[in-house]
Design a protein around this nucleic acid. Sequence first.
RNA 1: GCGAAAGUAGCUCAAUUGGUAGAGCUCCAGCCUUCCAAGCUGGAGGUUGCGGGUUCGAGACCCGUCUUUCGCUCCA
Length: 531
Amino acid sequence: MSNIKPEDFFKNIISHCKEYGFIFQSSEIYDGLSAVYDYGQMGVELKKNIRDYWWKAMVQMHENIVGIDTAIFMHPTTWKASGHVDAFNDPLIDNKDSKKRYRADVLIEEHVAKIEDKINKEVEKAAKRFENFDAEMFKSTNGRVKEYQDKIEAINDRFKTALNANNLEEVKQIILDLEIVCPVSGTKNWTDVRQFNLMFNTSTGAVTDETNIIYLRPETAQGIFVNYLNVQKTGRMKIPFGIAQTGKAFRNEIVARQFIFRMREFEQMEMQFFVKPGTEMEWYEYWKKARLKWHLSLGLGVEKYRFHDHLKLAHYANAAADIEHQFPFGFKELEGIHSRTDFDLMQHEEFSGKKLQYFDQDYTGPMNSKLAKTPEDWKDNHSFVPYVVETSVGLDRLFLAVLSSALVEESLEGGDTRTVLNLPPALAPYKAAIFPLVKKDGLPELAESIMKDLKFDFMLAYDEKDTVGKRYRRQDAIGTPFCITVDHQSLEDKTVTIRHRDTMKQDRVAISELHSILTEKTSMQGLLKGL
RNA sequence: GCGAAAGUAGCUCAAUUGGUAGAGCUCCAGCCUUCCAAGCUGGAGGUUGCGGGUUCGAGACCCGUCUUUCGCUCCA
C-alpha cells in the first residue's frame, strides 16, 4: 500500500483489524472506552503466538533465564520504593488562553514568594530609617508585615488542607481567590485542577479509605525485583541470570492515542538480567544486539528498525536505548533496553529492610553503588547487590508492528488486487485452511477427516462456502500461509493441493505428507534457529 | 488538555437548498459445481454515535456529550 497516504494506510489497518476480528474497541456498544481495546478471535491467536515466540527465545533458549508470573496487585510500598508514587503526584492546571500547563502548587508557592518579597521590601525600607534595626523585632511588631505574614500562613494552611483532603476544587478556588494570573497570557481563565497520577488505584477490603489503597502495576518489572531472591534461591540461579515475565500493566495516560500503540491497559514482555557490578555495560550491549536480532528475525524488513540512544536518562538508569520501529505514523519506540544499575534492588532493600544480596566467593569489590568507598573497605567483601539490565517490549506495539508491516494490497496481473497479510507463518493465527473444492461427491467428508488428523497439532480453518477463489482470498486477508484443497483426484490417489499464500502457487502432495510439511513450514523452530 | 477533521448496515461509501435513509461488498437460505474475491433467486441487517434544541418536517442547521484520526502538549 505504498501509493497511499500514511494516514489512510493507518485507517485501513484499523478497519482491517475490525473487519477480520483482530481488534475491537472495548465496550463498543456503549460508545467505546477511550484508549482501551479488545483482541478478537484472530487477534488473540496472533498475540499469543508473538508472546510464545518471545518466551521461547528468552526462556526456553536460555538455561540461565527463567520465567515467572506475578500479581498485578502489589504491596503499596513497592511503588514508593520504585519512585512511582513520588514522581507522579502533581496537581496540574491549564490556562485556557495561553494553553500553558502549570503545577498548581508551584503557582501558589510563587504567589506566596511574591508576598514574602513585599515583606522583605518593608524590612529594607525600615532598615534605612532606623539605626540599631532589629529585623526580627520589626517583623513581629510592624502591622503591615504582620498582615502579610498572616496572609501567607492562611494561604499555606488552606492549601495544605486542600491537598491533604485531595480537594482539587478547593485548590482551584485558592488560585482564583488569590487572583493568580498566567505569566504568559496574563488572564485568570483557568481549567479545573487535575491530579495527573499515572497509576490507577483501587482498594482492598470492603471499606474504602486512605489506608487500603492499592495500585494497578504501571510496569511488570517490580514483580520481578521483589521476587529476585525467591527465584535466585529456589532456582539455584548463578549470576549472570535473568527473570522473564509477560503480563498486563496499567498507566493512566493523559493522552492515549494511535490505536493500540498507547493504551491505558497494555501487555509488557520484560526480562530483568542480573549481573555483577561493573559488567553491566557489556551485558547492556549484548542485549541490545540480541534483541534487535530477535526483531529482525520476524522478517518485516531491516530498514524498519533503528536504535535510539537516550541522552536524558531516567532516575534509575545509567544507559538506555530504544529499539524503534517504523510504524505507519513514523519511527516509534517498540522495545527499551535499560541498564537500571542496582537502583531498584537497593531501593527494595532500604524500604523492606531485607537483604537482596548475592554471595560470590570470587567477587571482591564494593557492595553497591551507594556504599562504594575505598578498596580497603571491600577487601573481605564477597557480596553485592546485582546490577540489572532490562529488556522491555510492549506486546501490543509488537502486534501493531507485525500487523502493519504484513498488511499489503497487491496488484495482480489483469488489474486485480488482493489484500494479503504476509505474517511469518509461525505467528499466523491459522497455519492452514482446508477446503473441499466442491460441497458434494464426498469431498467435504475427506476434507473433514484430514482436518481431524491435523488439528491436534495445528490451528486450522475449514471453509466450504463460496467459490474456492473467494476462500483463498479470505485466508490471505488473515494471513493463513497454506490452503489445502481436496478435489476429485484426492478421492482416487490420496493427494491434495497445497497453495502458498505469498506466491499463490500450488503443489500436489500426498495427504500423508501434510503433517511434516506444515511442521517444517509453520513451527517456531526455524525462527529460533536463526537467532 | 488545546486546536482541526470525522462518526450513516459487519466493511467501504451515497443521500440536490432541510422534504420517503440507499448502493456495492459481507452475511443467511437455496440454485449452480467451478482452482484464485465477478453466475442466478430470495432474505436479513438502521432510533443516521448519544442527548437536547430550531423547524410543519433534521442524516444535514444549532448546543452539549462520547468515540476516532491528525497537529501541538505530555510520556518516570
